[in-house]
Design a binder for these strands. Structure first.
Lengths: 350, 350
DNA sequence: TTGTACGCGTTATCAC
DNA sequence: GTGATAACGCGTACAA
């Protein structure tokens, strides 16, 4: 394997000149540069990443901290990781995966002390997150995908749950729905401080109240059967229900199946809108599920590019980005009883 | 940040002794070791990974090569990556993600020349894969997840498509099915040399022929609508069909919906078995889908641990592992017309 | 515009 | 059992 020394000898220059020709930190004469280039080509030279890192004290490696299990946004997670890796590569960085159990937070300390990474992207941030606390005490640059309870001073990008829920409700209300229930995650998930659950429920309550509409929130485990049960109970308690906002894919599918079994038509009788989901999941249902899909790709890119800016000192403003889920209207949402076209015969009391 | 030098000074020994105390390459006196340990604790010393790599010429980094798009086994992919990262970490290695377009193979060359990684795991291997060719010409250790057309000399772990298909057919035949169709990926996918498509179709043909059963294979795009169309055409062409093996999740869901719409009961009239899938996807359907789930976790671990063995020279035998998908019997497969219990009234000709 | 020489923090090869 | 000290391959003042 050729080193810089080999190139220098072959080109008849000193190693430093080769180095400068490579980095461009200092001007190099045209003819010299050409000779060096020729030598590099001939030897198939590639700079040794490790030696470069040691000398420059910058590894161009970014660590992605992610909890082993609990891929809440599972569909989006792979998308996210892929986007992060691509964004990193485009800027000459590498992304190393740092799986870490939720308890073994000390691993985080090791990570930053080993100086293997120039910065850290933290995934699946919880409202109270010891990893974030630890990073905050260090000098290592980091960005969060998600938010802690108090994210003001921290670089973070997250789903705009507030706007997402608002968008979902808007979509349904505009379609003429008034009686809308929210099928959320399990209450355990909410109670444990899982950000998406907490924030969507708060938003749902707020926006429904704003509109003087009844607030119906149902927690549900992440299985199709639980979704069936939940749907059954919901329709019993609220027979006038015409729309469902969901954030629980397996339960959504179960609920839809139960709706059909009970003779309800989708979307003619009941509309279903799954938020923080993905078109891929939506494509599995029939009728095809209307979703609001999690911006996994955007968050991945944003987290990485912004971190790189911080590392390189070119960051203009702190990262405080909230991205709403994008509405992908498919076949499970349709006009409700108060739709403009059918105002004359609302289904309300039938 | 404390260095080895600081530790050496504080402990009153030389740097080399500290190094040996750390690596255990050479025996160190008990008292000396204790003093060194104390010094390290006091300073919060952690070895610098980069310096260590440069000196030892081993980075303890493994690169995971994965094509940006086309996550054929999308559900399993995240599982796979996670397992690989965990296995690596358990053995003191890091996993760096190397996204690479299918065309830009030269990136592979850069990867190995930069000497950033001690070895490479290649994901989503195609029957003819230029990345593999390139790696084969280098001295870099690598393992494949998947197989090329001629994998004999290469370390690889892959799904045992043959055994998977055999298992699927066995399951259905034992249930009393004889008229079984295979709903595969798109013909484009098969024609482009996508291993899973090619191998499953070959296996299906073989095992059905072995049993003197008719071979019905239907290619299908990866959408629910395509699945509906395919199902319709299949039932027209083969009205006696009682079971479906599928390897195409969206199409499977579409086909099931179409079955129900046409008044077929699942599994009473038609059984559905989705192979190379995952329980997570299966959980979305109702009745819950019987699947054969891709061994993403196993493959991830295997690829990494075996690669590490090769890197460290402790590999006993080459990696030639084929793991079948595990059958997860749920609610979409049931007795067919030739089931032992109902031999007296087969549905064949009704 | 180019060259010299030192430093980055370890490992590993000599000596003792 | 322990200490000097030369690599490892590159970046970067400082000199020229």
């Amino acid at each position: 394997m050729a080193t810089m020394n080999d190139v220098a000898k072959l080109a008849g220059v000193s190693v430093s000149t080769v180095s400068y020709a490579l980095t461009g930190v200092r001007p190099v004469g045209d003819k010299t540069r050409a000779r060096i280039q020729a030598a590099m080509d001939e030897l198939g030279y590639q700079p040794n990443a490790i030696a470069r890192s040691l000398a420059s004290r910058r590894t161009r490696i970014i660590a992605l901290l992610f909890p082993a299990i609990e891929h809440g946004l599972s569909g989006a997670a792979l998308e996210f990781v892929t986007a992060a890796a691509e964004a990193a590569r485009e800027q000459g960085y590498h992304l190393v995966l740092w799986p870490i159990g939720n308890d073994e937070v000390s691993e985080t300390r090791d990570l930053i002390q080993q100086r293997l990474a120039d910065g850290v992207v933290v995934m699946e941030v919880r409202l109270e997150d010891p990893r974030v606390t630890l990073l905050g005490q260090s000098t290592t640059p980091f960005t969060l995908i998600g938010r802690t309870a108090e994210p003001a001073g921290l670089d973070h990008a997250d789903i705009d749950f507030d706007a997402t829920v608002a968008g979902a409700i808007d979509h349904l209300v505009e379609l003429g729905h008034r009686s809308i229930a929210f099928l959320s995650r399990s209450s355990a998930s909410r109670d444990s401080g899982y950000g998406p659950a907490v924030r969507t429920e708060e938003a749902f309550e707020k926006y429904m109240t704003d509109r003087d509409l009844p607030v119906v929130i149902r927690h549900c485990e992440g299985t199709a059967d639980a979704g069936r049960t939940a749907l059954t109970e919901l329709t019993v308690a609220h027979p006038d229900l015409t729309a469902l906002v969901t954030m629980n894919d397996p339960a959504t599918f179960g609920a839809m199946a139960e709706l059909l079994d009970r003779g309800h038509r989708i979307p003619d009788d009941v509309s279903v809108l799954s938020i923080v989901s993905s078109p891929k999941v939506g494509a599995l249902s029939h009728p095809r599920l209307t979703t609001m899909c999690a911006p996994g790709t955007e968050l991945g890119r944003l987290g990485v590019t912004s971190l790189i800016e911080r590392i390189e000192g070119t960051q203009a403003a702190p990262l405080h980005e909230l991205i709403p889920c994008r509405l992908d209207v498919q076949a499970t949402t349709g006009p409700g009883p108060f739709a403009s076209g059918r105002l004359e015969h609302p289904q309300g009391g039938t």
